[in-house]
Nucleic acid binder design. Structure first.
Lengths: 165, 165
DNA sequence: AACTGATATGTTATATTATAACAAATTAGT
DNA sequence: ACTAATTTGTTATAATATAACATATCAGTT
């Protein structure tokens, strides 16, 4: 059973993609005995509406449509939960959030952030992580959290604008 | 002439370190024909007061002591200039800023952020960068900016708390 | 030295992102 | 049903960052 969600592409079946992500989240939370409550699930679903990173206050605006009482804390608490469970990533360089495509693995990922379409691709980057580990050993540095974020232009945007400028 | 500033350590001569950084900045700005004005210089000096990442509003508070008229824009504009010139780095995961130890090279660096002493070490991490480049080629992704930030415990803090807990 | 265009700064206001603190409601386990 | 833990509601405010426009300063030219 593959629980790995494929990378975003203009042609992928995103309905299936999102559905799968939520199903995985349901199972993970059940296994761990933590509660994927209605609010938390709604926030996760909103995040999974696209592969673009979503801002907390955009989530809040959308939450308010279905839940009039939603406040910043409503969203931030849900985000904290989802981050704790590894179901989403925080994109540090954007102050925004994306669904995690590999919630089950212990994962340290590269995030490729397209400046044009704003989609974020998550990649395991095994070789990169090995090199990082080696570098950290040399530095005698004990890592707790790694954020590797590359901003640029993704392959689809490059292809669709071959003569840009 | 070595323009590379060594990594922070509890024992390094930081007065010399800061002085050198400012001298390099002076020279770089002169060479490029850009103005390291009083305000910009003051902000750079404040940032170089330590190897810890400094928050914009902490800089503002310190600026106000010597320049009563200082406002957020005062600081943010100076920061923008310093970032543009590569004289400082923004630490995305902290919303804070550190002096760049290698302003002259075209540089993509790893930032090692100690959660205990809050010092930030900048490392070239050549192997890591090679691996990243390879990964990006595979992904057909054209990079514009790379942020590689590792939070954890630095070697000095590890040494000074061998029996922590 | 005055002129001029570009650059830098002053100033006010506001947008954006995030957390603290405490009360009320809900849930899970007994 | 009882109780402790968890989750949510609510108000307030902290922390980070930018927009917009007026004024001042600087660099190069007359």
């Amino acid at each position: 059973m593959s629980a790995y969600i494929e990378s975003p592409s203009p042609t992928h079946n995103h309905d299936a993609c999102r559905t799968k992500a939520i199903q995985i989240a349901d199972r993970i939370c059940a296994e761990r005995g933590v509660q994927l409550t209605t609010i938390r699930r709604q926030v996760l679903e909103l995040i999974w509406n696209s592969h673009k990173a979503t801002k907390a206050y955009d989530l809040l605006d959308q939450m308010k449509l279905v839940q009039h009482s939603a406040k910043p804390a409503t969203v931030y608490r849900a985000l904290d939960f989802l981050l704790d469970q590894g179901l989403i990533h925080r994109v540090e360089s954007l102050n925004a959030f994306i669904g995690c495509t590999c919630s089950e693995q212990k994962h340290e990922q590269l995030l490729l952030i397209c400046l044009q379409c704003h989609e974020v691709e998550e990649r395991p980057g095994k070789r990169v992580m090995q090199a990082v580990s080696k570098e950290l050993s040399q530095a005698e540095f004990t890592p707790h959290h790694k954020a590797i974020e590359i901003q640029g232009i993704c392959k689809y945007c490059t292809q669709s604008e071959p003569n840009a400028m």
